[in-house]
């Protein structure tokens, strides 16, 4: 019998331990409540599902970025992998290929771009952030060459690919958002319930120890970067289905928002740990702030500052909660010792 088992109070506390994402979830709910009280129209289901829809494409990238941060890597090329995959899929559709097949090829193409990042990073033993600093421009440039600097708009959008992805169930819930939620749940399970997920966190926690324990660290890094590419591909082809077009400059400004969402959600830059739920909530916080500023009628000249300030506030409150929880846990341990 363990020490805590002998103490019913401590055992109860352990059973009722709050999830680590509670801080950002409370921050999100509080923001929505405050905006909703001041501007009741904000809580209109149409607006809330619109916000969920707005979270979809960047949110998918954030889900993949959690794996990278957990393994102590950052991929700066996510926006252009998204764009390039979407452009390739859209061009195949324009060429007459079945949109479902074109979308599948687009996802594989995204995985291929991730593989390029991974192979360079692993073979040259470079951090992904350095490699993707270069491939960021390479993928952008190649995408511009392929799309000739113009939007790609598949002319025939009668395929079920477009109607299914852009459909809103009950006139409210975007199917694309449901795909995002399913992806997030699947990736949460992969990160926390599979050998691959444990390995990602082990390598991110201490690469040397992971290597000594027999984990093929290079293989895990490669898999993670390919996964990121495939998710970018998925997000890109879904974007084509949802919006019916892909523009040459779309995706260029995604990376900072994606990394911000993951960090707001509670995934540390130091690696070894990640939270998919936190990243999803982090992305929703960013969307709620953007929407809230407009509902409050805050002018553009102030909104940039307010956006940053609210993000800092949300992260500070989350850290404050975690700090207080850590102190309480420490006090509990001291009490048990005494």
């Amino acid at each position: 019998m363990t020490e805590t088992d002998s103490n019913p109070t401590a055992a109860t506390r352990r059973r009722w331990r709050m999830p680590e994402e509670i801080g950002v979830v409370v921050a999100l709910v509080a923001m929505m409540a405050v905006i909703g009280i001041a501007r009741p129209r904000f809580l209109n289901p149409i607006n809330l599902f619109s916000l969920l829809g707005n979270t979809t494409f960047l949110g998918m990238l954030a889900v993949g970025m959690v794996f990278l941060l957990a393994i102590r890597e950052i991929d700066l090329s996510v926006g252009w992998m998204f764009n390039f995959s979407a452009v390739v899929a859209a061009l195949l559709m324009v060429a007459g290929l079945d949109p479902w097949l074109a979308a599948f090829i687009g996802i594989l193409f995204g995985a291929g771009l991730g593989l390029v990042n991974g192979l360079i990073a692993v073979t040259l033993r470079l951090p992904a952030i350095i490699v993707t600093l270069g491939t960021y421009s390479m993928f952008q440039g190649l995408s511009l060459v392929v799309n000739k600097g113009r939007a790609i708009v598949p002319a025939d959008q009668s395929s079920s690919f477009f109607s299914v992805i852009s459909t809103k169930l009950f006139g409210l819930v975007p199917v694309a958002a449901l795909v995002f939620i399913v992806l997030a749940i699947a990736m949460h399970i992969v990160l926390h319930r599979t050998r691959f997920g444990y390995r990602v966190q082990a390598v991110g926690s201490n690469p040397e120890a992971a290597a000594h324990a027999g984990i093929p660290t290079n293989w895990v890094r490669l898999q993670t970067l390919v996964l990121m590419g495939a998710i970018c591909g998925l997000s890109g082809v879904m974007y084509v289905g949802f919006r019916g077009a892909i523009d040459p400059n779309e995706g260029g400004d995604f990376v900072l928002v994606v990394i911000a969402a993951v960090i707001i959600g509670g995934t540390p830059l130091s690696g070894g740990h990640g939270t998919i739920i936190g990243a999803v909530v982090g992305m929703m916080i960013i969307q709620v702030i953007s929407s809230g500023l407009i509902f409050f009628g805050i002018d553009a000249t102030w909104s940039t500052f307010v956006t940053g300030a609210v993000i800092v506030l949300a992260v500070s409150l989350d850290r404050l909660i975690k700090f207080q929880r850590a102190r309480r846990a420490e006090r509990s341990r001291e009490t048990l010792r005494s």
């Binding site: 921050a27 509080a30 409050f296 609210v310």
Partner: peptide, 10 residues
């Protein structure tokens, strides 16, 4: 604390 902070901000 979170709720009050967000309310004050709003």
């Amino acid at each position: 604390t979170l709720l009050l902070g967000a309310f004050a901000l709003a």
